[in-house]
Simulated scan of single mutants.
Amino acid sequence: MSVKSRRSLLLASGVLLAVAAVAVPVVVGTASAEPGSGNQARIVGGNQASLADHPYAVFLTDAGGNQFCGAVIVSSTAVATAAHCAKAVAKQDVRVVAGREDKRTEDGQVLGVSKVWISQGYSDPTQGDDVAVLTVRGQLDYRPAKLPDSGDAGLYAQGTQATVLGWGRIADGGARSDYLRSAEVPVVSDSECRSDYSVYDQKTMVCAGYREGGIDACQGDSGGPLVVGDTLIGIVSFGDGCGKAGKPGVYTRVSAYADDIKSQARTRTLFP
C-alpha cells in the first residue's frame, strides 16, 4: 500500500520540487457525477464551492505564492492545518490566504505567520497527531469554523454526511483546481477504516468516503477542513491515492485536539 500525505512539497523559492509521498486527501471529483463516475472534469464527486457558505476555508502558500496546503480559520488570529503542512515550509515563508475563492485573483487577505504550534506527538501522518495551529500576523476578517465539544460525538457516527473543502488536485496525478471545491462524503466506521488501513488509530483519526470510491480529497488539500454544517470534525491528513475504492480519506479527528486548538487560537487582546 502506498500511503501519501495530501500536500505538495515546495522549495522555499516557490519552485515546485515534488509531490509529497505521504497520503493526504484532496478534494477530487466531478460536478455532477455519482460515486464511481468516470467523468473527472471537476473535483471527484464534488462541485465548485462558495466562500459565502464556507468563509473559514483558506489555503497556504510559500513565499513565492505557490499553494501547497489548505487550512481552516479557528479564530480571528489563527488557522488550523495538518502538522505535515506546518513542517513543509519555513514559518517565515508561509502565507495564509483568506477570502480568495479563485487562486488567480487578488481577492481577500494574505497574512504572514508569527507562531507555529505542532502537536507534540507528531512524527508522520500515518502515526496520528497530524494537527497544527498557525498564528497569523494581523487579523482574519472571516468567520471561523466551530470546534466540536463533548456534545458533538454524534457527528462522528457512521454515515454522517460531511463536506471536505480544498483547492487541490482534481484527480490523482492531475492538475490542481483554481477554484475552491467541495465534496460530500460519509463518515466511515472505525472498524471499516481499520480494515482498510492497518495504521488507523480511532483516537486521533477519522475516515470518510464511499466504499466504491470516486469522491475524495487529493494532493494539495492536506490541512483543509472536513465539516458537518460549520463544525470542524476533521483535517485532511492522508490516504491511499485519491478516490480509490476501499480506500477512504483519513482525517485528523479534531475532537481529540479541540482543547489544544482553542488554547492556541485564543484571540490576542490588550486586556485580561
Rank of each mutant, 00 (worst) to 15 (best):
R100V: 02
G168H: 08
I170M: 06
E106L: 13
S182M: 15
Q127P: 14
K103I: 14
T163M: 14
R181W: 14
Y197T: 11
Q158V: 13
C218W: 02
S198D: 14
A145M: 01
Q161E: 13
S177V: 09
G168A: 14
V199A: 14
S114H: 04
A183S: 09
A171E: 09
Q158N: 15
L180W: 01
G99Q: 11
G166E: 00
G108M: 04
K91Q: 15
R194E: 12
D124E: 11
A217G: 15
R194Q: 12
S177W: 00
P148E: 03
W167P: 00
V164M: 14
V116E: 15
D93T: 05
A171R: 05
P148R: 02
Y122M: 04
S182T: 07
R104Y: 05
A175D: 10
V94M: 05
W117L: 08
L111F: 03
G128A: 07
Y142D: 06
G108D: 09
V89L: 13
V206Q: 08
A157L: 06
E101P: 03
Q139E: 09
G174D: 07
G174A: 03
T204R: 06
K103F: 03
K103L: 11
R169N: 11
D93E: 13
G108L: 06
D93S: 13
Y197W: 03
V89E: 12
V133L: 07
Y142V: 13
A132F: 03
Q202I: 06
A98M: 04
Y210N: 14
G128K: 02
V116N: 11
A183P: 04
T135L: 11
A208G: 14
Y200Q: 00
Q139C: 05
S114E: 13
Y210G: 10
G128H: 01
G174S: 14
V185M: 06
A171I: 12
A98R: 00
R100W: 09
S191G: 13
G138W: 11
R137I: 14
T126C: 05
V113P: 10
G108H: 01
Q161P: 01
G128Q: 02
R194S: 10
R104A: 12
G151F: 02
V133R: 00
A153D: 12
G112I: 07
S189C: 00
